[in-house]
Simulated assay, not measured.
Amino acid sequence: MKTSNFIAVLSALSLFSTVSFAQSKVSENQLKQNVTPIKGALSAVNQIEPISYNYNNQLNGLKLPGGTQYGFNADNVQSVLPNIVRTQSMLPAAPRKGSVQSVDIKTVDVQSLVPVLLGAIKEQQQQIDALKAEVQALRTKGGSNTSAAIK
């Protein structure tokens, strides 16, 4: 009897949650405002220096990953793309007696960097396409002598 009552309650809750929490669809246009293409992405990417590094594990007892890390210097990225740098507060793993101090660490939101990288790739492709067209025009204009020299 208890089992059947339990199943009946679960069924009722399941039905309630299905009815009450029905999904509604929201289009991208409804969700986002002030949508503009990213301009100058290639210039921004050229200013960002990818680095490899090791964390200083002696710093304030923070438990940071060991070994070689790959990423960016947050100060460098912030000077170019300030909106993708975040400040994260971290507590030491073993705080000193009587004092619990957090340490603020800047981090790069790499996911937000992806659209900028894609924009840079697209800008490069436009440059490549323009250069291909220029080479083709030179080949056509100069005849076979120019074609042989370019290859």
Rank of each mutant, 00 (worst) to 15 (best):
Q136D: 15
Q23C: 07
S20R: 10
M90T: 06
V100Q: 12
L113F: 04
G142W: 00
E28L: 14
D109N: 09
S102E: 13
Q58N: 15
T146H: 11
S112K: 15
N46Q: 06
N34E: 09
N73L: 05
A149L: 13
L42R: 12
N34K: 02
I84Q: 08
G61S: 02
N29P: 05
N83R: 06
A133C: 06
V114C: 01
G40K: 04
A41I: 09
V77C: 06
K132V: 09
P50S: 01
S17E: 10
T3E: 05
N29M: 02
M90K: 04
Y53P: 04
P115I: 03
V100M: 11
V80C: 02
Q78N: 13
Q136R: 08
Q125F: 03
G66V: 03
V100S: 11
V45I: 04
G61T: 06
T36G: 00
Q111Y: 10
I48H: 03
Y55W: 13
K106M: 08
N29Q: 08
P82T: 00
K25R: 07
A44M: 09
V100I: 14
V80H: 04
S20D: 00
S147I: 11
R96W: 12
P65Q: 04
V114D: 01
F72Q: 02
S17I: 09
L42E: 09
A41G: 04
K32A: 14
S102A: 15
I105T: 02
Q101R: 13
L131R: 08
P65W: 02
K122G: 00
K2P: 06
S14E: 10
E28D: 11
A41N: 05
N73F: 00
K25L: 04
A148K: 13
K39A: 09
Q125K: 05
P92S: 11
Q124E: 14
Q124L: 12
Q126M: 11
Q78L: 04
Q69M: 03
L138R: 12
S11P: 03
N5L: 06
K106S: 10
Y53I: 02
S43T: 13
R96P: 11
F16E: 11
G67D: 03
T87H: 03
Q30R: 01
L131C: 02
L15T: 13
K132N: 11
Q124V: 15
N5T: 11
A149K: 05
N60G: 03
G66T: 14
I105A: 07
I48E: 03
Q125M: 07
K32T: 14
A133Q: 01
A137H: 05
S52H: 05
N46G: 10
R139A: 09
N73Y: 07
Q124C: 13
A130W: 07
S11K: 15
T107V: 11
N5D: 12
Q88A: 10
Q33W: 09
S79N: 00
L15A: 15
S112E: 10
K141S: 15
R139T: 07
R139G: 06
Y55L: 08
Y55K: 04
G119L: 02
G143R: 05
N5G: 10
R96N: 15
R96C: 09
P82N: 04
